[in-house]
Design a protein around this nucleic acid. Structure first.
Lengths: 217, 217
DNA sequence: AGGCGACCCAAACCTCTGTATGATGGCAAA
DNA sequence: TTTGCCATCATACAGAGGTTTGGGTCGCCT
């Protein structure tokens, strides 16, 4: 059972409309949530089991996952771990009919956005989903700029990376030359290449990019 | 009711021994936790109510707070908020006899380390407290280096801060001079003062400190 | 009134950075 | 083998960074 909709009949792949992936083995629950979420113009993906979600391709848009804790096959909490392992770091909103406190605490510790007991108020679910989508928006923005950064960094040759490492550590060209066994002029050339490839014009910017990349001596 | 102990009769203010502040209106619970925590060489501070904890002075050491949700006077969750407002950002471990899921979720969202239902296993409490103390250790280390940083920054004059802002933004001395209506040589002098007062020798280090301080143009 | 600190500027001098021009050698893919 | 990329180095020059020395104004506190 897989169903999907978007709020206004727009393309299901529209990367600007946030989506919510819902996993529950009760079709009535799926139906109700679908209706609720579409009422605030969110696209939905409906799944009857965790396996279906894993098999599916989620849109390249901000989104989150709404999960029943008691699922066919796996525990929702274990599934949470599986998703993280597969790099699907979408924020998760749990719901449950027969949950307990340890369960909710474990879920929250593992990064869940919320943990709702059935029956919950519609507004609580909408609030949770909205918060989850916002969190994903932030995550995706951060991931995107990290990707741009590493893409630039990977255009550097091995030598250029060495030079960059020492330069952002604050060493002078001649010191870098000494460490690497090069002449100063060669270091200057590598340094110039680093600046150009990393798309920066000042050392200050290079240092910031290096920080974001986690480069340390 | 206020009591305090340290594991080995050492000074109660020993800043190297982590402590646990326990708040519960049941003396038997306080006694049991005191014994449990001392068994792993933690210092304890025992309180019968939130007010007592607020009136007390917590040690300048890594520590955490163990709190019953149902407390005389205030709700434990509200108390959690009060502590944060007063700058007492110690990690909190909640315990409760009659809690529910929304309560635990709210606590975890507000940053609680754990939320244990009574009766809990001793080991669960010890694990939670250990994790909380470790978190506090990290927090305190981060706060300490932030304080050192702002202490240095506050020795700067207004002009020096302006110059620093533009310098770490990557502007050249002459550009800074133009913006501030100064001569380049004056900017150089301010810049030199900034480097000295901030305790750095390279621009790279200054940029990193500025980043940590959240300085932006 | 005197002293202090912040702020401002200039000349001189040195070091460091950045770039261009030109050239050599290694190495791997086409 | 040719082509291309990487790496290396030299010389030369322009521009930017950094310090010292020396001097000036202003406002505030004692």
């Amino acid at each position: 059972m897989i169903r999907q909709t978007s709020g206004r009949g727009a393309s299901a792949e529209d990367p600007t409309v946030p989506f919510v992936a819902v996993v529950d083995d009760d079709p009535a629950v799926l139906e109700a949530l679908d209706s609720l979420l579409r009422s605030i113009s969110l696209a939905t993906r409906l799944f009857g089991s965790p396996a279906e979600l894993l098999a599916a391709q989620l849109p390249d848009a901000p989104g989150c996952i709404v999960l029943d804790v008691r699922l066919p096959g796996v525990s929702g909490l274990d599934f949470q771990g599986q998703l993280v392992e597969r790099g699907i770091g979408r924020p998760i909103v749990f719901m449950t009919g027969h949950g307990d406190i340890p369960m909710s605490v474990r879920a929250m510790k593992a990064g869940a956005v919320d943990f709702l007991s059935k029956p919950f108020r519609d507004q609580d679910m909408l609030d949770a989903v909205t918060a989850a989508i916002e969190r994903d928006r932030q995550q995706r923005a951060a991931a995107a700029s990290r990707n741009d950064l590493t893409a630039e960094f990977e255009t550097l040759t091995a030598r250029e990376r060495e030079v960059m490492t020492h330069v952002v550590a604050g060493l002078m060209n001649k010191q870098v030359a000494g460490i690497l066994g090069l002449s100063e002029i060669t270091v200057k050339i590598h340094r110039g290449n680093v600046m150009r490839k990393m798309g920066v014009r000042t050392l200050a910017d290079l240092v910031r990019k290096a920080e974001a990349l986690g480069i340390k001596p």
